[in-house]
């Protein structure tokens, strides 16, 4: 065994797990922000798909990766605005309107792709950015500091979002709105404003996740995300609505996936059992949550539209 599992293999597997975790992390962070303010969005996958297509198309036409990334974010913002209008002033049922958004994104991204592009053509991909000094550390440098920029952005967002939610007035408003919109309102916090902000920010992150995926892969095709957005929602529950928890969930899911892939590549898993092995990320994510025993409770006002004075 030990002659197969070399340092190189371990380093490659961990780096691979981090890459696999990145789109989940971006989308989960976005979903977590929305849910902290009491809004569930089941449409993440649709927004990811639209963000992925928009960024893919812009990169294909302009050859500018960063313009593509910006387009992905912008697409997310627009979808966020749409979703916010539906769920805040119009008070639509969040579970089912999210599914509507998902179906819209799934169909629309495919339709636009067929109309505007047709045959899948490759686009420029992110190139790796080696963090000065840190990337030179043996083993560790290769695992953590030789990635594409989107990986760093995703993981840097974890402390930033945690800080905003836990240490700023705005974060306090978000939590208040998610726990008790009535008291937040009585303290002068505008529930609709906060929710518009969190929904749009959350969707922007979903759009960014889509952009990250399309540009990392250098391609788009029908249903590119393959239901990643739903896994991202699941990981919010894993992470108990907290940024570090969401990161842990994304890493567990990504890392187990990477280990299984690596083991298959090395022939450590017989081919007859390859489907069984592919279950591992899902099963281990559930088991991990049982063992960690999640004692956190969901935001009290989650999925509840706020009606002033009712």
């Amino acid at each position: 065994m030990s002659d197969v599992i070399t340092t190189t293999v371990i380093v490659a597997t961990i780096a691979s797990g981090i890459r696999l975790a990145t789109p989940f992390l971006l989308a989960s962070l976005g979903e977590a922000i929305g849910q902290r303010s009491g809004v569930l969005n089941l449409g993440v996958d649709g927004v990811m798909l639209l963000g992925a297509f928009a960024s893919y198309y812009v990169v294909l036409e302009t050859e500018s990766i960063w313009l593509g990334v910006m387009t992905g974010i912008l697409t997310g913002l627009l979808m966020g605005l749409f979703y916010a209008i539906i769920t805040v002033p119009l008070r639509a049922e969040q579970g089912v309107s999210g599914i509507g958004i998902y179906l819209f994104g799934l169909g629309m991204s495919d339709l636009l792709f067929q109309k505007l592009v047709g045959t899948p053509l490759p686009i420029d991909q992110f190139s790796e950015w080696h963090v000065p000094l840190l990337s030179d550390i043996p083993v560790v440098g290769e695992m953590f500091f030789q990635h594409t920029p989107m990986v760093y952005i995703a993981f840097l967002l974890v402390p930033i979002i945690a800080f905003i939610i836990n240490r700023t007035t705005f974060g306090l408003s978000i939590r208040a709105v998610g726990e008790s919109p009535e008291s937040a309102d009585s303290l002068g916090v505008s529930v609709p404003k906060v929710r518009f902000a969190t929904i749009m920010a959350g969707n922007a992150l979903a759009g960014l996740a889509g952009a990250a995926l399309a540009i990392e892969l250098g391609i788009f095709q029908q249903n590119l995300t393959n239901a990643m957005g739903f896994i991202a929602i699941a990981l919010v529950y894993f992470g108990a609505w907290r940024a570090p928890g969401v990161m842990a969930g994304s890493l567990v899911f990504g890392m187990v996936g990477a280990i299984v892939l690596q083991a298959k590549t090395l022939g450590l898993i017989p081919r007859s059992a390859s489907d069984i092995a592919a279950m591992a990320p899902a099963v281990i994510t559930i088991l991990a949550l049982i063992i960690v025993a999640n004692r956190f409770r969901q935001p009290a006002a989650l999925t509840k539209p706020y009606v002033r004075g009712d």
Binding site: Q262, K264, T265, S274, A277
Partner: peptide, 25 residues
Amino acid sequence: VNVNYIGSFGDVALSAEAGKAHIAN
């Protein structure tokens, strides 16, 4: 020859990582 059946016809991201795992090996 390392053969990796990833368990999906549609998972592009997983297929990319499978490719990278081959290259790493």
